[in-house]
């Protein structure tokens, strides 16, 4: 029998929701697992681990990206925002508030990926049409809602953002 394979560990520090978060992890640690299991921010969910479902979408320097398709070690160069950084129970962000008002979620598993995606979308397009809203969420899978109330949520979030400014 050969020697046990011992994997090299790296010191990885990623800025998450404005705070530097450090862990010693192997190079292959996916950003999604780093956030969930090393940092303990379990709001980012993992639905497919091949980049299709969008549940794990986080904001990387403000742009939505799949955290299952990035290694934590690579993410050190960026500022990462997760669903936990979009608002709190006592102070929901506008997108979160809109999803609450419009019944934009059911089981809630895919929701964090929608919230991050929509947050970035509304920064680029603060006053979308219904068609644009639908297209904006068309890279995220939801198995519960049929998307209709998510589209409504996007439009409502745009209103809430406009009211806040």
């Amino acid at each position: 029998m050969s020697e046990p394979m011992v994997e090299q560990l790296l010191d990885v520090t990623v800025t998450v929701n404005g705070r530097p978060r450090h862990a010693r992890v192997p190079a292959r640690r996916l950003l999604s697992d780093f956030l969930r299991h090393d940092v303990g921010l379990t709001g980012t969910h993992v639905g497919c681990e091949h980049g299709v479902c969008g549940a794990c979408t986080v904001l990387v320097d403000g742009a939505p990206m799949r955290s299952c398709l990035m290694f934590a070690v690579t993410a050190q160069a960026y500022a990462v925002t997760t669903v936990e950084g979009l608002g709190s129970m006592d102070g929901l962000g506008p997108v979160q508030q809109a999803f609450l008002e419009c019944h934009g979620l059911q089981c809630g598993f895919c929701t964090p990926g929608f919230l991050t995606t929509v947050t970035a979308f509304l920064c680029d397009n603060p006053d979308p049409t219904e068609g644009q809203a639908r297209e904006a969420i068309s890279g995220n899978l939801c198995r519960c809602t049929g998307y209709q109330n998510i589209v409504r949520s996007v439009l409502r979030a745009a209103e809430l953002r406009a009211e806040a400014t």
């Binding site: 379990t42 969910h45 608002g87 929901l92 999803f99």
Partner: peptide, 13 residues
């Protein structure tokens, strides 16, 4: 919803 919308859900993993 407020819990699920803020990352406060507690799913199995």
């Amino acid at each position: 919803d407020p819990r699920l919308l803020t990352g406060g859900g507690r799913y199995l993993d």
